[in-house]
Design a protein around this nucleic acid. Structure first.
Lengths: 216, 216
DNA sequence: CGATGTTTTGATTGTACTCAAGAGAAGTGG
DNA sequence: CCACTTCTCTTGAGTACAATCAAAACATCG
């Protein structure tokens, strides 16, 4: 059971030389949809959006990722990335080549366990995401989204009450399945309620309690 | 790379005695939300819905699962099941006890790989689910849902053109984030277009082509 | 058989989308 | 550095779509 709580989000420094670093500028894709699977990536700095691109051209945001998150897990089973991950700001990732995933030295199970745990974390987060996007009212979704972002920042050691969003209103809307205008209006509304303070992407949470329990 | 294509959805019969079978009647929960994690389950017969239960009482369907699917992956990382899985019809599952997940004989990596692959499959499917629930119009969502069900049945060796849904309109609606009335109206509408034929849960697809490409 | 749950259909209401315009920020090149 | 373009964000007005409320037909089950 102890093993299950083993949570190395980032590979031990001692083995860091085994993994290749990669630096991306804002807007640059880490991998494209339907590209041959070439490994998993752990985010060391920056943030990403994962999107699927529809035939008609428009994209749907399926997740936002931050430091310590794993990218590319969707590519394993069919050997092809099912979505596209794009850096939202200048970012660094560490690549775990696909050959290493199973062919690691049997004595060092760290990597395998890390991947396994990380994949499970992703699953768990997907469930949280469902609760988010399946709320009835758009304003509630935006409130939950901000609360979840707050939590992510807190986990990373940043202030949960004051942070800068890395994504546009359009991207938030795509993630929550509403239009960008609706996101904007929801933020304005939450601001008028005195729950948050908004200045473009700079968010200040005035009452995390009210934000989390917001039901319209 | 060959290992990545290794896809044993169901554990080899030779080791079947290691795993405990469990039989569930329709409506019976396999595990509850926030219950202590006790292992993963592979569906051998029947079908399940996975739901999260909100504090206000109502539930949200996050996935439907069929034969060969893995249940419980969400429970690994926090050692607690994050959702509740309920049998939609009489079903059989095989339990993979949590102690076995990492403590397996190191020479037999089958289980570990199976779990890893299955988890990745889940991730991949989540992405497909996003494409489904993030369509603009409710009618399109229902059409995509039917197309995806058709695909699942086909993968399992059943007819992709004629099948019986295991879930209620309400459950479909919860999954697609629309009301049960909207699901009903969408089915009626698709039926009037001559794309499908509906008789309660008995679905006949008259044109899979039209159903898959349906855009309203 | 009565009781309960599922499904369909209709009428009305409300929320979020669409279309549109303008202000503000960010990035580019001369 | 400034003019220029481009993108982001806000706000408003009208519309369309799905939610809600309601009722009835049909299934299922004890």
């Amino acid at each position: 059971m102890e093993l299950l709580r083993y949570k190395p989000k980032i590979p031990p420094a001692s083995r860091a030389h085994l993994f290749r670093r990669r630096r991306l500028r804002a807007g640059q894709p880490l991998y494209m949809m339907e590209q041959q699977f070439s490994g998993l990536y752990v985010i060391r700095r920056g943030c990403f959006k994962s999107v699927i691109r529809k035939s008609c051209g428009d994209e749907h945001v399926i997740s936002f990722s931050m430091r310590g998150d794993l990218l590319g897990t969707d590519g394993i089973c069919k050997d092809i990335y099912r979505c596209e991950s794009v850096a939202l700001c200048d970012s660094d990732v560490i690549r775990v080549p696909s050959d290493d995933i199973f062919a690691m030295d049997r004595n060092s199970d760290d990597v395998e366990r890390m991947l396994y745990w990380a994949t499970s974390t992703e699953m768990s987060r997907e469930i949280a995401a469902y609760a988010l996007t399946h709320s009835s009212k758009s304003e509630v979704r935006v409130a939950r989204f901000l609360a979840s972002q707050s939590g992510r920042f807190f986990e990373l050691g940043f202030s949960p009450l004051r942070f800068t969003l890395a994504m546009t209103r359009r991207e938030i809307g795509s993630y929550l399945n509403v239009t960008l205008e609706t996101v904007s209006r929801a933020l304005t509304s939450l601001s008028r309620c005195g729950i948050i303070d908004v200045s473009l992407r700079e968010i200040t949470i005035l009452s995390l309690e009210d934000l989390s329990n917001y039901e319209g």
